[in-house]
Nucleic acid binder design. Structure first.
Lengths: 215, 215
DNA sequence: TAGATTGTTAATCGATTAACAATC
DNA sequence: TAGATTGTTAATCGATTAACAATC
């Protein structure tokens, strides 16, 4: 679908937000929208929206705007949400459990098919329709099922060794909640980081900065 | 401390990562580091590191580099981690619970002093040293304690009304896990978003894009 | 002093915004 | 047809990288 390959990262990072706003409009029964009206709702410029969309194709129609339903579908397909990437989650602590239970993987291109932990207390626990397995079984599990992606919810200290094992098993795609920089360890992997600590520190900066005396 | 006020957002978003890498070096007993060596470890250019740091001050020394401990402290103080912003968390579901238990608020400039939910099942539950209170008590609680920030872990549907109440109570700083765009509702607030769904979709795009046939 | 490495200015690169012709 | 709004090219703005003089 992409017109000119390699799309800039800032464009990609805006796509989910477009998708969300269009989903809301769809729910509210809005049929068509212009780049100007969407820009006002989202706090962007109309120009940017048109630029962004035209990286992938001409989805609009002059004098009319964009079909909400059509554009929503297009963006979903650009994002690849119709995939079913088979995924495992490692680390069934509070965060891992929350991610496993909270996320709508199926509608986001993923299928969570295994959860692992090395704490005997957690092994055997049921989360969603899955049972937490021993991390020792990672190798056999991955050999039986071809796994597309791993979700890392382990402490920083456990991350490097675990990453080595997963990499050895051929896993190249990671959703990384661990406080560890995976992308520095391997160069041919795809990583999307969720660093909650970093996010909290950025909030701290923003508050501190706002309250700082002028000049 | 800032030399020239208003620092670009990309610089700010790199600070927590600097802080993390410097913390690691500190733990490993490294005393000094040059921008070149740090750049190699972090996958940045040395130039960018020097530019970033010089937004805030000249922390290095020609011919020597940067003191790891000194720089770590400086960045911590730039981020404002020595603050104790009094915070409340609303929504004690899986995600809210995970955030409450998992995060080291104290070392990140925050102090979590209240957790709220409107589900009778959850009210009274103990999380950390806190007891989940009824959301109905938000007003009285906020009037007794002066609250600096709110952490929103509620479903999208509950977010707008809740935000109205918190805003009315004078809260202007938000860590927003809800799937709702707070910053579009109020213009004079500070928001740091953690949109897990968006993040997962971006991972989906990256995988899909990587596997896309060349050209 | 000589070598190293910063702080800072200048050059380049990329992303956003503006403008407008094409067209529904 | 006239009005609206896109797709796209050009102009601007901002962020990153390179270069180098200052200096420890």
């Amino acid at each position: 679908m992409p017109k000119n390959h390699h799309i800039a990262a800032p464009v990609i990072r805006r796509l989910p937000r477009y998708y969300r706003f269009l989903g809301d409009l769809l729910e509210n029964g809005v049929k068509r929208i212009s780049s100007r009206e969407l820009s006002e709702r989202m706090g962007l410029t109309a120009s940017q929206i048109r630029q962004d969309l035209n990286c992938f194709g001409g989805f609009g129609q002059q004098g009319y705007g964009y079909s909400v339903e059509g554009l929503h579908k297009e963006i979903g397909s650009i994002l690849g949400l119709d995939n079913r990437y088979k995924s495992i989650l490692i680390g069934a602590g509070n965060l891992g459990k929350a991610v496993a239970i909270h996320m709508a993987f199926e509608t986001r291109g993923f299928d969570l098919i295994g959860i692992f932990d090395n704490d005997p207390e957690k092994i055997g626990e049921r989360i969603r329709e899955l049972t937490v397995s021993d991390t020792a079984q990672l190798e056999s599990f991955c050999q039986e099922n071809s796994i597309d992606a791993a979700i890392l919810c382990v402490p920083k200290s456990a991350a490097p060794q675990l990453a080595d094992r997963l990499y050895a098993l051929g896993i190249r795609n990671y959703w990384n909640f661990s406080h560890y920089d995976l992308s520095m360890r391997f160069k041919d992997i795809v990583v999307e980081n969720v660093h909650l600590n970093d996010s909290l520190m950025i909030l701290c900066y923003k508050i501190t900065d706002r309250d700082r005396p002028e000049q």
